[in-house]
Design a protein around this nucleic acid. Structure first.
Lengths: 198, 198
DNA sequence: ACCGTTTTGTACACATATGTACAATATACT
DNA sequence: AGTATATTGTACATATGTGTACAAAACGGT
């Protein structure tokens, strides 16, 4: 019951995601977002509560469709190294396929907001720390399975995170797939974390 | 002749650099900067012309004091690999010594402005491309001098740039020197581009 | 047809932000 | 002392931005 919304909440989040992806969080004012969505600020606040709250929803959607979300599906028995390699290649593909070379929304947000936004900053920090932990778990599994040596796992996890962040930013400038993937692959090989994907 | 300025232009640039470093370019409005400097917007425009023009001056100052500026001083006969290693270590040191973990102002600006600002964006892109070219020249020199094999020089240059960008962003979250430098060193070793600094 | 409920539209009261215009001020030089 | 010159202060016109408050509108159900 009650008056129905004049717009699709989920589609709105998708649209806002792309706006923030392109222009950054602070550049997307409530006024600008509302106008983009064709709704009043009144409806905006009523629907999303606040810009911060909306950003958290956007982040959830973003993480679900991000190339590295595939890392969450790797199971014992899978070739971890092959899967990690595939994720890095997919990331290079995704970044260089983007017509506007926007890089990674999450990494852009880290650069913009960590240390500057009291609520969003820590959330993004946590996301990075979780990603590092996930790399660490995966590398431990890979070591157990004899894919790599059980050496410097924590260091290698950080190196992978560094590589992932780097390519996501570099992709704003280096927009050709091979130019992004070759150095990434080269680095993975150097770390002993590369197996060709079939 | 004429009425003298009530403030030190160079000190003002330094202050603005730190403001932009901390908060990003767009967050630093002419109004906010002017108030920070204790001058009127009138004086701001009179002195710097525009916010963009000031940013270019800030960038020049920033690049001069940036850890990787040492790469410009490497000469034929020097151990290129040792010098590159030292620059990466110095970068890790600089980023983790920063009390506020602001990362690298230039990299932050790339994330914020490339693809979004018509004038500053291309300038920053150019800076990255120049850095890549510089790595390429240095690696060629290293190959000539027999420090490394003459293989995949362009790819390795891109890998170095990727690594440098990555650690500069990662440093906003990973604030401990060893946690930043170990994976960086590990990656350099994997690339065959590491020699201990004395 | 009426009622409860939810969304929408409109208004208010501010604060921030930009760029320009022009008068007031403070210096150096003659 | 007066003048040229550059900086500084004040004002204007306008746009954007925030958060709240409350009336108007549009639905479902009785």
């Amino acid at each position: 019951m009650g008056r129905p919304k004049s717009f699709d909440r989920d589609k709105a989040i998708e649209i806002v995601m792309h706006e923030i992806w392109q222009q950054g969080y602070e550049a997307c004012s409530v006024k600008a977002i509302s106008e983009k969505l064709g709704i009043t600020r009144s409806s905006f606040y009523n629907t999303f509560g606040s810009r911060e709250a909306l950003f958290f929803e956007v982040l959830d959607v973003y993480f679900q469709q991000s190339p590295d979300s595939a890392l969450a599906n790797i199971k014992s028995g899978d070739s971890v190294i092959k899967n990690i390699s595939a994720v890095f290649e997919a990331a290079c593909r995704a970044r260089t396929t983007d017509k506007h070379s926007r890089g990674c929304m999450a990494v852009n947000s880290v650069a913009e907001l960590v240390g500057n936004h009291d609520i969003i900053g820590p959330k993004l920090e946590q996301a990075i720390q979780n990603s590092i932990k996930r790399f660490e778990s995966l590398l431990s599994l890979a070591a157990e399975q004899g894919e790599i040596e059980n050496d410097n796992i924590a260091t290698k996890a950080l190196a992978l995170q560094n590589l992932l962040i780097g390519l996501n930013v570099l992709s704003k400038v280096v927009t050709n797939f091979d130019e992004l993937w070759q150095p990434t692959k080269h680095t993975l090989k150097g770390l002993g974390i590369y197996t060709a994907t079939r």
